[in-house]
Write a protein that binds this DNA or RNA. Structure first.
Length: 489
RNA sequence: GGGCGGGUAACCUAGAGGCAAGGUGGUGGACUGCAGAUCCACAUACGUGGGUUCAAUUCCCACUCCGCCCUCCA
């Protein structure tokens, strides 16, 4: 039974979808005016896993993630570049989504853009006005927060406190400081759309109320985003959608803990924003994803080279076990009562891993616990590498792959560098008597065979030389009691 | 000032009213020409002070430290 921590109640609640077998999920997307950074990736990774797990549980998931392409900062950036804001944001959108693709984060089902839903927003604003929750002021339209008694429920704020804090922006055009803009009157040099209140553009919050209800209908199941969006953005979304439609908005609110960098908040002012693209120069996408998955989605992860190293090494441990399984696996009928007793132990361990994995994920998508289950499974695998049943290994391999996929692991195959084969051939020419086919496997077998002969003759220098050269080409060579094994890093 | 969430070994990360789990690292052992991998074993932890309880690290209160939001933020 899946439980989700709901920001609304600050408790874990049993997940019950509105429509049986279906889940509607809306996640606040990027404001596209620069590159995607690892904070974005953190959030979309988290929801990629949420989506994957829900699908694994048998739900059909409709995943909507908006693109904010109408915004002050976009306009400012476009003006600096002397280009049209919408063209500029289109370019950024493509870049950002491509970066996330390269990180191996699966795309949402629908990416609605603010600029393409202005009419819908105007309609919603009109309804808010019709229902008495907003007012017009010199070409601007504002939401009147005091007219919406439930305001503050999501973030635990009390209206009086918000007002008395003195921290929110006053404005002559607003009746109350806490009111927020639904529609902003056009300013010179800015893009605008016509509306019943004159030319202008929508406020930021309205796009999410509008597009979520347009694509998912109200109410819908899950609304997610970064923890920083709880107030005021999500609070405002609820107010707007409810004021306009009278319907409930979202049932479960999920918020992702914000990524930190070397123990500090990641921000423009600190100048420590790490772009996805730059990070991909240094680390394999799978390592980055594993790093994220190692921290529960509500806990702020701390990004650092040291943390990446830990992720890298842990992931390698899993990968090695999976490769060994792959080598031994072959589809074959599997009946528990036909297994030897040690094979039964292993088979039961696989079942145990599945059960623990599901239990962990059912508990508010507890990926660190799920990963612990996988590590337990890896340990059992390494202990049982002497079994004889290929079907058992197939089942183990399939299980590890299936569960890993939910955590975004094993999504890409290793790329084989074209030049590796040539370099291996050169090595073989030097040490091998009979040249094998120019394929990596054949070359490796021949080279390692030559090395074994050297080892038999106790020619350690030669053997170590070969091993060093292979290591340099990216091969991990290990001598074990069962012979020499190799793998690509 | 208001709201929210945290402080678990050397480090990272889970957890729960009664054995505190996983990873990285460390130590010892098995294996081994060496290296590596793997397995086995071991060591080190619940911020402080109260309270509730047979029992708290887990619940409550205070204190303290840290972070996030209240301005754009995933």
């Amino acid at each position: 039974m899946l439980k989700i921590y709901n920001t609304l109640s600050r408790k874990k609640e049993t997940f019950i979808p509105i429509h049986k077998g279906k889940v509607g999920m809306y996640v606040c997307g990027m404001t596209v005016y620069s590159d995607a950074h690892i904070g974005h990736a953190r959030t979309y990774m988290a929801f990629d896993i949420v989506r994957s797990y829900l699908e694994w549980k048998g739900y059909t998931v409709i995943y909507v993630q908006n693109i904010t392409d109408v915004d002050d900062k976009i306009i400012a950036a476009a003006n600096r570049e002397k280009s049209d804001p919408l063209c500029y944001s289109q370019k950024c959108t493509d870049k950002c989504l491509t970066d996330l693709d390269r990180l191996g984060i699966q795309r949402a089902g629908i990416y609605p853009k603010a600029s393409e839903n202005i009419d819908n927003m105007i309609q919603m604003i009109q309804k808010i006005l019709d229902n008495g929750y907003g007012y017009i002021s010199d070409g601007d339209v504002y939401f009147s927060v005091e007219s919406f008694p439930k305001y503050g429920r999501l973030s635990g704020q009390k209206m009086e406190k918000i007002q008395s804090s003195g921290r929110i922006n006053g404005d002559e055009k607003k009746r109350k400081a806490e009111d927020f803009a639904l529609w902003k009157k056009q300013k010179p040099g800015e893009p605008y759309w016509d509306s019943p209140w004159g030319p202008g553009r929508p406020g930021w919050h309205i796009e999410c109320s509008t597009m979520s209800s347009k694509y998912l209908g109200l109410p819908f199941d899950i609304h997610g985003g970064g923890l920083d969006l709880v107030f005021p953005h999500h609070e405002n979304e609820i107010a707007q959608a409810t004021a306009a439609t009278g319907k409930e908005f979202a049932n479960y609110w999920m918020h992702v803990g914000l990524l930190r960098v070397d123990g500090e908040k990641m921000s423009k002012s600190l100048g420590n924003i790490v772009n996805v693209r730059d990070l991909l120069q240094k680390y394999h996408p799978e390592t980055i994803r594993f790093f994220y998955a190692q921290t529960h989605y509500r806990t702020p992860p701390d990004f650092s080279p040291a943390a990446m190293k830990i992720a890298q090494e842990g992931l390698t441990r899993i990968t090695r076990a999976r490769e060994k399984l792959h080598q031994k696996a072959c589809p074959q009928e599997l009946k528990r009562n036909e297994l030897t007793s040690t094979e039964k132990d292993y088979f039961d361990a696989i079942l145990q891993c599945r059960a623990e994995f599901e239990q962990a994920m059912d508990d508010d998508f507890n990926t660190p616990r799920a990963i612990a289950a996988i590590f337990d499974f890896v340990k059992m695998t390494n202990k049982h590498l002497q079994e004889k049943h290929p079907g058992l290994y197939q089942y183990a391999y399939d299980t590890l792959t299936e569960l890993g996929n939910i955590l975004t692991l094993f999504r890409e195959e290793k790329k084989i560098d074209e030049t590796i084969c040539e370099q291996l051939t050169k090595l073989a020419e030097k040490y091998v008597e009979v040249m094998p086919k120019k394929e990596i496997d054949a070359l490796m077998i021949a080279i390692l065979d030559a090395r074994d002969k050297a080892r038999d003759k106790k020619e350690w220098e030669k053997a170590d030389m070969i091993r060093d050269k292979l290591e340099n080409l990216g091969f991990e060579v290990q001598d074990t009691a069962q012979g020499t094994t190799w793998r690509m890093r």
